[in-house]
Amino acid sequence: MPLPFLTADRAFEATDDDVALPHDDQERWRRPYRPGPWRVAAAAVCLLLASYVLFAAVVIALTGSVSEAGVIFGVSLLVISGALRLLRMGVWVSSRGLRRVGFLRTRTVPWNGVAAVRTAQQPVRWLGLPRTVQGQALTLVRRDRTQDGPAVLFTTHGADFLARFEAFDRAADAVEVWADEFRAP
Protein backbone atom coordinates (compact mmCIF):
# COMPACT_ATOMS: atom_id res chain seq x y z
CA MET A 1 0.00 0.00 0.00
CA PRO A 2 1.64 3.26 -1.05
CA LEU A 3 1.82 6.01 1.56
CA PRO A 4 2.05 9.24 -0.47
CA PHE A 5 2.36 11.45 2.61
CA LEU A 6 5.51 9.61 3.69
CA THR A 7 7.59 10.29 0.60
CA ALA A 8 8.54 13.58 -0.93
CA ASP A 9 7.68 14.35 -4.47
CA ARG A 10 10.36 12.73 -6.65
CA ALA A 11 10.34 15.75 -8.96
CA PHE A 12 11.98 17.90 -6.26
CA GLU A 13 14.99 15.60 -6.27
CA ALA A 14 15.71 16.21 -9.94
CA THR A 15 19.10 17.71 -10.67
CA ASP A 16 18.01 19.37 -13.90
CA ASP A 17 18.61 23.09 -13.39
CA ASP A 18 16.64 24.06 -16.49
CA VAL A 19 13.33 23.54 -14.72
CA ALA A 20 12.56 25.98 -11.89
CA LEU A 21 9.54 24.06 -10.61
CA PRO A 22 9.85 20.39 -11.57
CA HIS A 23 6.26 19.22 -11.18
CA ASP A 24 3.38 17.87 -13.19
CA ASP A 25 0.29 18.89 -11.27
CA GLN A 26 0.52 22.27 -9.56
CA GLU A 27 -2.86 21.89 -7.85
CA ARG A 28 -1.81 18.88 -5.77
CA TRP A 29 -0.48 19.56 -2.25
CA ARG A 30 3.05 18.23 -1.91
CA ARG A 31 5.81 18.32 0.67
CA PRO A 32 9.10 19.35 -0.98
CA TYR A 33 11.20 17.18 1.35
CA ARG A 34 11.18 13.79 3.01
CA PRO A 35 10.30 13.41 6.67
CA GLY A 36 13.43 13.40 8.80
CA PRO A 37 14.77 10.39 10.68
CA TRP A 38 13.70 11.79 14.06
CA ARG A 39 10.11 12.15 12.92
CA VAL A 40 10.05 8.69 11.34
CA ALA A 41 11.66 7.13 14.44
CA ALA A 42 9.08 8.74 16.74
CA ALA A 43 6.25 7.49 14.53
CA ALA A 44 7.78 4.00 14.46
CA VAL A 45 7.96 3.93 18.26
CA CYS A 46 4.32 5.04 18.44
CA LEU A 47 3.30 2.28 16.02
CA LEU A 48 5.29 -0.26 18.04
CA LEU A 49 3.45 0.87 21.15
CA ALA A 50 0.15 0.61 19.28
CA SER A 51 0.92 -2.99 18.31
CA TYR A 52 1.41 -3.89 21.98
CA VAL A 53 -1.80 -2.11 22.91
CA LEU A 54 -3.68 -3.96 20.14
CA PHE A 55 -2.29 -7.25 21.40
CA ALA A 56 -3.45 -6.31 24.90
CA ALA A 57 -6.93 -5.57 23.51
CA VAL A 58 -7.08 -9.03 21.92
CA VAL A 59 -5.97 -10.71 25.17
CA ILE A 60 -8.54 -8.73 27.16
CA ALA A 61 -11.26 -9.62 24.64
CA LEU A 62 -10.37 -13.32 24.89
CA THR A 63 -10.64 -13.21 28.67
CA GLY A 64 -14.25 -12.14 28.36
CA SER A 65 -14.41 -8.39 28.93
CA VAL A 66 -15.41 -7.05 25.55
CA SER A 67 -16.19 -3.52 26.75
CA GLU A 68 -12.72 -3.11 28.28
CA ALA A 69 -11.17 -4.52 25.12
CA GLY A 70 -13.11 -1.92 23.11
CA VAL A 71 -11.67 0.88 25.23
CA ILE A 72 -8.12 -0.46 24.80
CA PHE A 73 -8.75 -0.88 21.06
CA GLY A 74 -9.88 2.77 20.93
CA VAL A 75 -6.66 3.83 22.68
CA SER A 76 -4.62 1.93 20.08
CA LEU A 77 -6.52 3.69 17.29
CA LEU A 78 -5.67 7.03 18.87
CA VAL A 79 -1.98 6.11 19.03
CA ILE A 80 -2.02 4.96 15.39
CA SER A 81 -3.76 8.14 14.21
CA GLY A 82 -1.25 10.20 16.23
CA ALA A 83 1.65 8.40 14.53
CA LEU A 84 0.16 9.02 11.10
CA ARG A 85 -0.45 12.68 11.91
CA LEU A 86 3.15 12.94 13.12
CA LEU A 87 4.32 11.70 9.72
CA ARG A 88 2.05 14.17 7.92
CA MET A 89 3.38 17.22 9.79
CA GLY A 90 5.42 19.74 7.85
CA VAL A 91 5.19 22.34 5.11
CA TRP A 92 3.17 21.56 1.99
CA VAL A 93 2.96 23.67 -1.17
CA SER A 94 0.70 23.92 -4.20
CA SER A 95 -0.36 26.60 -6.63
CA ARG A 96 -3.08 27.62 -4.17
CA GLY A 97 -0.74 28.48 -1.32
CA LEU A 98 1.49 27.29 1.48
CA ARG A 99 0.15 24.91 4.12
CA ARG A 100 1.77 24.29 7.50
CA VAL A 101 0.49 21.05 8.98
CA GLY A 102 0.95 20.83 12.73
CA PHE A 103 -0.01 18.02 15.07
CA LEU A 104 -3.33 19.55 16.10
CA ARG A 105 -3.94 22.28 13.55
CA THR A 106 -3.35 23.05 9.90
CA ARG A 107 -2.91 26.57 8.60
CA THR A 108 -3.09 27.49 4.94
CA VAL A 109 -1.89 30.83 3.58
CA PRO A 110 -2.79 31.66 -0.02
CA TRP A 111 0.10 32.93 -2.10
CA ASN A 112 -1.43 36.40 -2.38
CA GLY A 113 -1.24 36.62 1.42
CA VAL A 114 2.50 35.88 1.47
CA ALA A 115 4.80 38.91 1.56
CA ALA A 116 8.08 36.94 1.66
CA VAL A 117 9.56 33.52 2.34
CA ARG A 118 13.20 33.68 3.35
CA THR A 119 15.91 31.87 5.24
CA ALA A 120 17.19 33.58 8.39
CA GLN A 121 19.99 32.88 10.85
CA GLN A 122 18.40 33.01 14.31
CA PRO A 123 17.93 31.11 17.56
CA VAL A 124 15.72 28.09 16.86
CA ARG A 125 14.11 25.45 19.03
CA TRP A 126 15.92 22.13 19.23
CA LEU A 127 13.49 19.33 18.20
CA GLY A 128 10.59 21.60 19.17
CA LEU A 129 11.66 21.69 22.82
CA PRO A 130 11.99 24.95 24.80
CA ARG A 131 15.80 24.86 24.50
CA THR A 132 17.08 27.15 21.74
CA VAL A 133 20.27 26.88 19.72
CA GLN A 134 21.68 28.97 16.90
CA GLY A 135 20.52 27.75 13.51
CA GLN A 136 18.70 28.60 10.32
CA ALA A 137 14.97 28.91 9.88
CA LEU A 138 12.73 29.28 6.87
CA THR A 139 10.38 32.12 7.80
CA LEU A 140 7.09 33.26 6.34
CA VAL A 141 6.17 36.94 6.37
CA ARG A 142 2.45 37.44 5.82
CA ARG A 143 0.96 40.56 4.28
CA ASP A 144 -1.81 40.85 6.87
CA ARG A 145 0.33 40.32 10.01
CA THR A 146 3.28 42.66 9.82
CA GLN A 147 3.54 43.45 13.55
CA ASP A 148 3.58 39.81 14.74
CA GLY A 149 6.85 39.08 12.99
CA PRO A 150 7.67 36.22 10.64
CA ALA A 151 6.33 32.74 11.32
CA VAL A 152 8.88 29.91 11.38
CA LEU A 153 8.03 27.18 8.86
CA PHE A 154 10.91 24.77 9.60
CA THR A 155 14.42 24.92 11.03
CA THR A 156 17.77 23.17 10.78
CA HIS A 157 17.24 21.74 14.27
CA GLY A 158 13.71 20.42 13.79
CA ALA A 159 12.66 16.77 13.55
CA ASP A 160 13.00 16.80 9.76
CA PHE A 161 16.40 18.46 9.32
CA LEU A 162 18.52 17.80 12.43
CA ALA A 163 22.07 17.15 11.13
CA ARG A 164 20.79 17.28 7.52
CA PHE A 165 21.89 20.75 6.39
CA GLU A 166 21.86 19.91 2.66
CA ALA A 167 18.28 18.65 2.91
CA PHE A 168 17.30 21.87 4.70
CA ASP A 169 18.88 23.98 1.96
CA ARG A 170 17.12 22.00 -0.79
CA ALA A 171 13.74 22.21 0.96
CA ALA A 172 14.11 25.92 1.73
CA ASP A 173 15.11 26.62 -1.87
CA ALA A 174 12.13 24.63 -3.17
CA VAL A 175 9.65 26.52 -0.97
CA GLU A 176 11.24 29.85 -1.93
CA VAL A 177 10.92 28.96 -5.63
CA TRP A 178 7.25 28.10 -5.16
CA ALA A 179 6.75 31.42 -3.36
CA ASP A 180 8.52 33.36 -6.12
CA GLU A 181 6.48 31.59 -8.79
CA PHE A 182 3.00 32.05 -7.32
CA ARG A 183 3.25 35.00 -4.92
CA ALA A 184 1.56 38.21 -6.05
CA PRO A 185 4.05 41.09 -6.48
Rank of each mutant, 00 (worst) to 15 (best):
V177N: 15
A44V: 08
A115P: 02
A41R: 15
R142Y: 05
L98I: 11
L48W: 14
T63D: 14
R107F: 12
T15Q: 13
S67P: 10
R183N: 07
R170F: 04
G102C: 02
A174M: 02
G149P: 00
A61W: 07
D148G: 12
W111C: 02
Q121D: 15
L86Q: 05
Y52K: 12
E13S: 11
D160K: 01
P110K: 10
P2S: 15
A8Y: 09
V175Y: 00
E166P: 07
R145I: 03
P22A: 14
H157N: 10
G97K: 02
R105C: 01
V58I: 11
P22Q: 04
S81C: 11
L86Y: 09
A43F: 01
V175R: 01
R39A: 09
V175T: 01
A14T: 13
L84M: 07
A69R: 00
C46K: 13
D25G: 02
D17K: 11
F12G: 01
F55H: 14
I72L: 10
V93T: 01
F168C: 03
G82F: 15
R88Y: 12
A184R: 13
V71H: 08
L86C: 09
S51Y: 08
F168A: 05
L153R: 07
V109T: 15
R99V: 06
A167G: 12
T106M: 07
G128M: 10
T7M: 09
F154M: 05
A61C: 01
G36A: 02
A159W: 11
G135I: 01
G36I: 02
G82Y: 14
F73T: 06
T119E: 11
V133K: 13
V59I: 08
